Simulated assay, not measured.
Amino acid sequence: MKDRTFEIIKSSGKKVRFSLSKLRSSLKRSGANKETIDSIIDAVRDELYQGISTKEIYNRAYALLKKKKSYLASRYKLKKAIYELGPTGFPFERFIKEVLSFSGYTAELDEVLEGKCVSHQIDVLAHKDDETILVECKFHGDQGLKCNVKIPLYINSRFQDVKANWPNHNTKKSKLNQGWVVTNTRFTEDAIQYGSCCGLYLLSWDYPNGQSLRDRIDRLGLYPITVSTLLTQREKQFLLSRNIVLCRQLIGDSFYLDHLGISDTRKKKILNEFDALCQIERPQ
Rank of each mutant, 00 (worst) to 15 (best):
Q143E: 12
G86E: 08
K69T: 00
K55F: 06
L153V: 01
K172F: 14
L176D: 07
D130C: 06
L78S: 02
R60D: 00
K175F: 11
K163G: 03
K79Q: 06
G144T: 01
L145D: 04
A107V: 10
G115Q: 13
I57Q: 01
H169P: 00
A63G: 13
C197P: 00
Q193R: 15
K128M: 11
I151P: 00
T54Q: 02
S103I: 04
E111M: 10
C198Y: 14
E108I: 05
S119Q: 13
K146V: 12
S119H: 12
I151Y: 06
E111T: 11
G179D: 10
V124E: 01
G144R: 05
Y194S: 08
K146C: 08
I155K: 08
G141K: 06
P167V: 08
R186I: 09
L200Q: 09
G195I: 11
E136C: 03
A164K: 15
A81Q: 03
L72F: 08
K150Y: 06
Y58N: 05
C197G: 07
D190A: 15
K66F: 01
A191N: 10
Y58A: 03
I57G: 00
K150R: 12
A126F: 14
K66L: 02
H127R: 15
N165V: 02
N177M: 14
A126P: 12
E98R: 15
L85P: 01
T132I: 09
Y154M: 08
Y194R: 15
F90K: 14
C137I: 07
V112H: 12
D110M: 07
N156F: 15
T171E: 15
T106E: 13
N59A: 09
H127D: 13
D190R: 14
K69R: 15
A126Y: 14
C197Y: 15
L134S: 08
E98F: 05
F102G: 02
V124N: 04
Y71F: 12
S174W: 11
E93V: 06
S157K: 15
Q143V: 04
H169F: 07
A61T: 02
L153D: 02
E189F: 14
S174H: 15
K77G: 00
Q143N: 03
E98Q: 12
N168S: 09
I155F: 13
K69A: 09
E114F: 13
L100P: 07
F187E: 07
V182T: 10
L85H: 04
K68G: 00
S119N: 12
I122H: 08
E111H: 04
S174R: 15
T106M: 10
E84V: 01
E131P: 00
K79M: 02
V162N: 04
G89F: 07
S70F: 02
K116I: 02
V149M: 05
Y62R: 04
C147Q: 04
Q193I: 11
V162G: 01
T132L: 06
Q160A: 08
F90I: 04
E56D: 06
L125D: 06
P167A: 11
H140K: 11
C198M: 13
D161C: 05
Q193E: 14
E93P: 04
K138D: 01
E93C: 05
P152Y: 01
V99M: 13
